[in-house]
Structures are given as structure tokens and as C-alpha cells.
């Protein structure tokens, strides 16, 4: 019987079991919001830990053996090496069990998979991040990457909406982000005494000045958000090729075989999850 450490590290083009996960250790875990936990992870295998790299917007297949596996976006920037972070909302058996993991416990991961945000192609431009709910997680990877590579990008704008104030994620990082631009938040509903905004995310566009011709938009959130946000970006004059959206679909394999995540003829897991509006123009069911 082989040990995981006997199995060569995953890379393309080698005849090995694509579905075999690798062990990762929980370095720390905190509750970000009710029902949402944040995990800092590292590969147990030192060579894998050293070699692991990814791009913002890519996802990992995260599993507990005996319970199941699910695709989860990486929420830390690729500029941090040696560890990576995920954000998990408790929604079922697997995510419930993940929530019970504590520091020092291990879980199993394979990846990274999919196409992330093409940050290299956005060099020199302003960036606007538009997130809804836990959709901030993959955006946070790109935001922190842009913050870290400060000179490479222009001004950063973050527009973020959540259902309630307590469900706003990564709130203690907004001040850092604000040093590089603006962060505006809004919630659907709030208890009395809430000083912030309530309403729909598109109202946040009124609070910021944008230079659409020199700005790339990065979006992740629930499908209901897409049409309103895209409509507004269009009004502002954003080109389809400058709007990038991270799609969510039910996935199983993550490698373009099992068919669960297909949107017409494309695989969300391979050609996505991040696609430009230019790429998905004409694919009428992509944003549903």
C-alpha cells in the first residue's frame, strides 16, 4: 500500500490518477462571519508546499475522505507562497465537517484548476472588484495580489454587497485596501443602528469615479447580481473584453470529464471559472 508521499506531485501530462488528492494541514482557522470559516492551509509534503503555485480565481477540489469533495476558490493571493487560504460557507455534509476542522487537522486537496483572472494582462490599468456575499473570496485573492504588486496596477475600487452587516467578509482588511483605492459596501438589510448603506450593489457605482476605458472589472457573486451589475458597467462604457466574471456551477471532477459544470459547449472547470463577457457573449445560459 502506497503512502501519499510516495505518489509523485501532480502535474499535467503525466499518467497518474487525476483524482488522487494530496494532504494539506490547517495552520489556522477562524470564523469570518456566521456560518463562514476561513482556513489557512499548507501542503504536508514539503516539496509540494514549495512548488505549489496558482493564479487568482483558480479553485481547489477540497475533500474529507469518507465525506466528499467540492470545488472551493483560493482566497489568498498567489504572491504568498507556502500557504494558501480558502473560505467555506457551511451548507451541507462536507462543508459542515470542514467547519469542525481545527488547527493541526488535515484535509485533502487537488488542483489548482480552471482559468483565473488574467491579472498580467491588466497591468497598468485600474481595477474594479464587484463582489456579492462569499463571492468576495476569489476576488480577495486578486485584490491582495494587486495590493502586493502595488506598482503594477492603477487605482483599486472594491464594491461589495452582502445580505447583512455581519455577513460582510474580510472587514478588517478594508483599511489596507483603502490605501490603494476605495472600498464601498452595502447590505440588503441591517439592524437598527447600522451606519452603512442598505440597498442593491449597483447603487455603489454612484459613490465612485471610474475611468472605464482604463479599468478592468472583476466580478464574483450570485447570478441574480450579474445582470444588474453588467447592465451598469455597460452604461458606464466598459468593453465586454474588460469585464471578467467568475461563474459558479455544480462540479464533480474539475478536469472537464464529468459534464456537471458544462454551460453549453464550455466547461466551467476548464475554460472557466473566470471568463470575460467577450468570451461568453452569445452563450445565453452562462449568466443564469
Amino acid at each position: 500500500m502506497a503512502k501519499l508521499s510516495d505518489i509523485p506531485p501532480r502535474e499535467y501530462n503525466t499518467p497518474h490518477n487525476e483524482y488522487l488528492p494530496e494532504e494539506a494541514r490547517v495552520l489556522s482557522t477562524t470564523e469570518l462571519a456566521p456560518g463562514i470559516r476561513h482556513f489557512v492551509l499548507e501542503f504536508v509534503d514539503p516539496a509540494r508546499k514549495e512548488a505549489f503555485s496558482f493564479c487568482s480565481g483558480q479553485f481547489m477540489q477540497v475533500s474529507l475522505l469518507g465525506i466528499g469533495e467540492a470545488p472551493i476558490s483560493i482566497c489568498s493571493p498567489p504572491t504568498i507562497r507556502g500557504t494558501f487560504e480558502i473560505c467555506v460557507r457551511e451548507a451541507g455534509n462536507l462543508t459542515g465537517a470542514l467547519h469542525r476542522l481545527r488547527q493541526g487537522d488535515t484535509l485533502w486537496v487537488r488542483g489548482p484548476y480552471g482559468q483565473g483572472f488574467p491579472l498580467a494582462e491588466m497591468a497598468g490599468r485600474d481595477l474594479i472588484f464587484i463582489g456579492g456575499g462569499i463571492g468576495l473570496a476569489p476576488l480577495r485573492s486578486a485584490i491582495d495580489c494587486a495590493v502586493c504588486l502595488n506598482d503594477e496596477f492603477g487605482e483599486l475600487t472594491v464594491l461589495y454587497g452582502a445580505r447583512t452587516p455581519e455577513l460582510l467578509l474580510f472587514t478588517d482588511e478594508y483599511d489596507t485596501w483603502r490605501q490603494h483605492g476605495r472600498v464601498e459596501t452595502i447590505v440588503d438589510e441591517a439592524p437598527p443602528g447600522w451606519q452603512g448603506r442598505t440597498g442593491v450593489i449597483t447603487t455603489l457605482f454612484d459613490a465612485v469615479d471610474l475611468k472605464p476605458e482604463n479599468t478592468s472589472a472583476l466580478i464574483c457573486g450570485p447570478p441574480v447580481m450579474f445582470s444588474f451589475v453588467l447592465g451598469r458597467l455597460k452604461e458606464l462604457g466598459f468593453a465586454d473584453a474588460d469585464i471578467f466574471i467568475s461563474l459558479e456551477r455544480h462540479m464533480r471532477c474539475g478536469v472537464g470529464k464529468c459534464e456537471h459544470c458544462v454551460v453549453e459547449s464550455f466547461y466551467t472547470c476548464r475554460q472557466g471559472p473566470v471568463l470575460s463577457i467577450g468570451q461568453i457573449r452569445g452563450i445565453s445560459s452562462a449568466l443564469r
Binding site: A2, L20, V44, G66, A97, L101, T106, L107
Partner: peptide, 19 residues
Amino acid sequence: LGGAFGNGAPAGEQLVIEP
């Protein structure tokens, strides 16, 4: 699995994987 379903969690060192 008692760990993962119960209060604790499975400790990974306890696992052996067989392709």
C-alpha cells in the same frame, strides 16, 4: 470518520491512501 461527523475531525496522519 467519527471525528469528522462528531465534534472533532479526522487527523490526516491517520490516513493511508491506496490508488
